[in-house]
Simulated scan of single mutants.
Amino acid sequence: MVKLTIIGRVSDGLPLAQGPRYVNEEENDSFSTYKQQGEFILEEISRAALPLSNANIRIDHHCFYYIVGHGVCFMTLCDSSYPRKLVHCYLQELAKEFEKFDTSLVERITKPYSFIRFAGSIIGNIRRQYVDTRTQTNLSKLNAKSLQNVDFVTEDFSQIVKRRKRSYLLERATESSEQVSQIWGSKKLEVIALKWTPITILSFVGAILLWTSLIARDDQGVYGY
């Protein structure tokens, strides 16, 4: 069953619209988690950390499926047993309906989930067609030869999270290295070095000469010279 639908902008990962949720009582408490996971996947797509082709993200006994077209990501959460062909048809229908809207309107959206014109009846009406996989229409889609080669790149959500953590740690390490490099390569530090390096050298040489003269005096005292 299609349980959650999120449509987002690929360029910045902004979620534009969300369809009605369909979860049972046991899953109701987990719905906010599923939504956050979907938003995280959308962010990873915008960072080019996930492919722009059809993809299937496995998580527990569910799967996130998404397709990308014209800079927009169409994503849905389904039971892992839900037929891939029907998922593909569902997402394709969403994409076709979305194309009817002015693209400049989509680009002007700045607030998450504010594309209400699409989030309401359009997603709900399309989703209702895919509730029962045994209807004649859906059976025809499952048997259609044109959908025989429908494929999704499969990933595990846990692996995506691990990659994000490694990427974050690498970015932090790079930033720290650049900050140190900027400090040591700054003009102010260069001026300080030019000013104090000769003084430091002279002080060091003077200390050596003083130490040498003291040793010479001690030797004279010992040997009576």
Rank of each mutant, 00 (worst) to 15 (best):
I215L: 06
G38E: 00
S176N: 13
G69Q: 10
L16C: 12
S177F: 03
E178V: 01
F64C: 11
A55I: 02
K3R: 09
P83K: 07
Q220Y: 07
E25C: 13
L14V: 05
I41F: 01
N143V: 06
L86G: 03
R108F: 09
E171P: 00
E97H: 12
P198G: 10
V106H: 07
G13R: 12
N56K: 15
P51K: 05
I123W: 05
H61D: 11
E99C: 02
R58Y: 10
S80G: 00
Q179H: 01
L209F: 14
K195Y: 09
F64N: 07
K165F: 02
V161I: 09
I208M: 02
S46W: 06
R47M: 04
R128N: 10
C78N: 05
Y66H: 08
F64Q: 07
I201L: 10
K111W: 01
S121Q: 15
N24K: 06
R84D: 15
D79M: 01
Q136S: 13
E39G: 11
L147S: 04
S53G: 03
A49W: 04
S121D: 13
E175Q: 07
R47C: 03
V222G: 04
R172Q: 14
M1D: 12
S104G: 11
N149C: 14
G124S: 15
L202R: 15
T5S: 05
N125D: 09
Y22V: 03
C73R: 01
A216R: 13
L139R: 11
M75I: 01
F152H: 02
N138M: 04
T110W: 09
F115N: 12
E26N: 11
R117A: 10
V153W: 01
L42N: 00
